[in-house]
Simulated scan of single mutants.
Amino acid sequence: MPNRKSIMKFIHTADLHLDREFEGLVQETPFQPYRILEKIIDLAISEAVEVVLFAGDNFHQSQPSIKIQNYFIEQLTRLQPYGIQAVIIFGNHDYYRESVYWIDFPEHVTVFKSETVTTQKLTLKTGERLAVSGFSYQHPHLSVNKVEDYPEKDGSCDYHIGLFHGEFSGQSFAPATLTDMLAKDYHYWALGHIHLANQVADNVIYPGTPQGRNKKETTNLVVLGEMTPTGNLIYFRDLAEVHFETLSIDLSACQTLVQALTFIKSNLVDTATFYSLNLENYETIADHLQEAVDNDELLEELRQSHVIVKLKLMPLSSETDELTKIVVPDLRLPALDLEQVYSLLPHKQEIRAVFEDADFQDEVQENLALFASQHFEFGGTLDEN
Score class of each variant (00 low, 15 high):
2 P>N: 05
10 F>Q: 07
11 I>E: 11
35 R>D: 02
41 I>H: 10
43 L>E: 14
46 S>R: 13
50 E>P: 01
55 A>W: 08
58 N>L: 13
67 K>E: 13
67 K>Y: 03
77 T>L: 12
84 I>R: 09
85 Q>E: 05
99 S>K: 15
104 D>S: 13
111 V>Q: 12
112 F>I: 01
116 T>L: 11
129 R>D: 02
132 V>Y: 04
133 S>K: 10
135 F>Y: 09
136 S>H: 05
143 S>L: 04
150 Y>D: 09
155 G>P: 06
158 D>Y: 01
163 L>I: 04
171 Q>S: 13
178 L>V: 13
179 T>G: 09
181 M>N: 05
184 K>V: 01
185 D>W: 01
206 Y>H: 07
214 N>T: 02
220 N>I: 00
246 T>W: 01
249 I>A: 04
257 L>D: 10
263 F>V: 02
264 I>M: 08
267 N>A: 01
269 V>F: 04
269 V>K: 15
271 T>G: 02
275 Y>V: 02
276 S>C: 09
279 L>H: 07
290 Q>H: 12
296 D>T: 07
310 K>Y: 00
314 M>P: 06
318 S>E: 13
332 R>Q: 14
333 L>C: 07
337 D>R: 11
344 L>M: 10
345 L>T: 04
349 Q>E: 14
349 Q>D: 13
350 E>W: 06
356 E>Y: 09
357 D>M: 06
363 E>K: 15
369 A>D: 13
375 H>R: 11
382 L>N: 13
